[in-house]
Design a protein around this nucleic acid. Structure first.
Lengths: 330, 330
DNA sequence: ATAATCTAGTTAACCGTTTAACTAATAAGT
DNA sequence: ACTTATTAGTTAAACGGTTAACTAGATTAT
């Protein structure tokens, strides 16, 4: 790779002239510009952004930390973030955690090592409240932003879906369409999101005068076989509807129901969460996860922080159910 | 952020000692180690990988260039690549192209700017054969690897699915299950993959004594509305089966068929391509795209190139149809 | 005519590492 | 006892840029 020195030599000016010309802090005369441009073209010169970074202390790179890149919900957010940031020249590096705290910490280390400007963490590693690595990033001057990790205001910048009220809406909808035994399939036990959905579910049930059957509440850990067993159990226990905490889980539920020849939505209604491509393709009712909106807002918020506007923000996005062919008034 | 100088000062040694201790080229005595370790811990020192990079000329980062991150087929490959490379300490940066050559070139520029060690390009921008940016990367010492871009040996390192023989197998399977009017939904016109499938389709038809109806061959450009229209046309024209060049397209086809109350697979069989999560979840027959295998192999091949083993390799992976509930002998 | 301002550059220090080459002190070999 | 190796470091240059401070020459103002 050619360096700025090669270009300078070829153009017959100092390397400072090249650097300043490229950054717009020097206006060379026409003839010099011509020589510089020719030299750049001839050598295929591209500035070494890393060398620049060590002086300017900005890498023009942001990181996203997600449980899994092939999970459609995260993929949709990721793409939205990238689409929003790319026009500003940011590159995006992805670290996956498999929802493990340990891996999230490794990612944080990489982010520090690479002096990445800002990082977006999506969801929390299962059931863990250790924030020390995030704190360290902020102390190191790396801007952080959390998505679907906290559901009430706190010291971190955060954007989340209001799954408490969203969950209540789903339950309300199901009750209003005459369902009485609503199966609830949660993700991980002790994870904020699961517990919020559970709370919403129970409270809405009570508010509408139904009583709670704990046998209808299960944690699937986002595992397929576990989910299948749960769905079978729920059928056994007489569930007339199922609300699952992810579209993927809901689609697995649909599959089990189809295998058992149980008519959806006439016999059992199914609601997912995410409103991802998945739910659209299979025409499934789903609580909107607003992945693309969240990604877009997250990118904008991070951009703001990167520019130094540093009031920590907390956003809770209201959501609503998108009804399709897997739910029906009975 | 603390630097190596801070640590050196605190530990009372030269910065070279810190650097060499951390890289294992210096074995300090116990007592010194203790002082260094304490200084590192106290200052939360993490080496600045960018500063190191400018000296060592390796960034420990690889890039993947994909049409879209939220396309499930690419997401699966991406994750497989990352899983394979992460243990070696590589960070992965993603650039999306929307299948536009212009954007692919922008990505190439970023890759050069950031002195990224190696890049994997997945598929080709629609219908374009300009490889100058890839050539430039290789000339710049950046290792490149192409996926599903070339289907016969050439000067680039490349891994592809043998879609010619795969396509023939699908057509053969459909004919053997007594289908006579096979609709073929391709992607972009003039894109190698599309044309290969078309060739496979026509040749297999002729080999098995059926004649070709050009009205059954359409390009959907991977657009939903266009796909829906095509499917309706194919139904009109009496197709008894549909082979689509992507799972997503095939699922849209399934949806149209369902809307029209046409029984799949009894009335019309549908085959997708990819064998992605999508096809598994909706139990759709699909020609295997082997995304995860490709990702894994790609990562390994790139790793090899990064280590200097630089015979250009060309791999064509054989594939086969995975039958599920959307195809049937009639 | 002289001072003040502008233009188009240059010089040199700096960013945070790595690494080749050197050194001083200690240990080992004969 | 004297050379030779080994150990545990240090020094200084290098990597490829950026940037503050300077300068020489041309223009403008008074």
């Amino acid at each position: 790779m050619t360096t700025i020195n090669d270009v300078a030599k070829l153009a017959g000016v100092s390397k400072a002239a090249i650097s300043r010309y490229l950054s717009g802090t020097l206006k060379p005369k026409k003839e010099t510009i011509k020589r510089i441009e020719e030299a750049i073209a001839e050598t295929n010169y591209t500035p070494n952004r890393m060398a620049a970074s060590i002086r300017t202390k900005t890498s023009n790179t942001i990181a996203i930390v997600i449980p899994s890149a092939k999970n459609i919900a995260f993929a949709e957010m990721t793409e939205a973030i990238n689409d929003e940031l790319a026009p500003y020249g940011y590159s995006m590096v992805t670290y996956t955690t498999n929802e493990k705290l340990e891996q999230e910490k490794l990612a944080s280390n990489k982010i520090r090592e690479n002096r990445i400007d800002g990082a977006i963490f999506i969801t929390e590693p299962k059931g863990n409240k250790d924030m020390s690595h995030i704190d360290l990033l902020e102390e190191s001057g790396i801007k952080t932003l959390l998505i679907n990790r906290f559901f009430e205001p706190n010291k971190y910048s955060n954007i989340s879906i209001d799954c408490y009220n969203g969950g209540k809406e789903v339950v309300k909808y199901l009750i209003e369409t005459n369902h009485k035994k609503i199966g609830l399939i949660l993700g991980w036990e002790n994870q904020d999101q699961s517990e919020l959905y559970k709370k919403a579910y129970k409270e809405q049930l009570l508010e509408m005068g139904l009583n709670i059957d704990d046998n209808l509440i299960e944690y699937c850990n986002f595992e397929e076989t576990k989910t299948r067993n749960i769905v079978e159990d729920l059928i056994q226990r007489g569930a007339d509807s199922i609300f699952a905490m992810s579209d993927r889980t809901a689609i697995i539920a649909l599959d089990v129901l189809e295998e058992k020849n149980i008519d959806v939505p006439n016999k059992i209604s199914v609601v997912g969460y995410g409103n991802t491509q998945f739910s659209k393709l299979v025409k499934m009712t789903s609580l909107d996860g607003k992945g693309e909106l969240i990604g877009k807002l997250a990118a904008q918020m991070l951009l703001k922080k990167l520019r130094g506007v540093d009031e920590d923000e907390f956003k809770l996005l209201s959501t609503s159910i998108v009804t399709r062919n897997t739910t029906k008034k009975i």
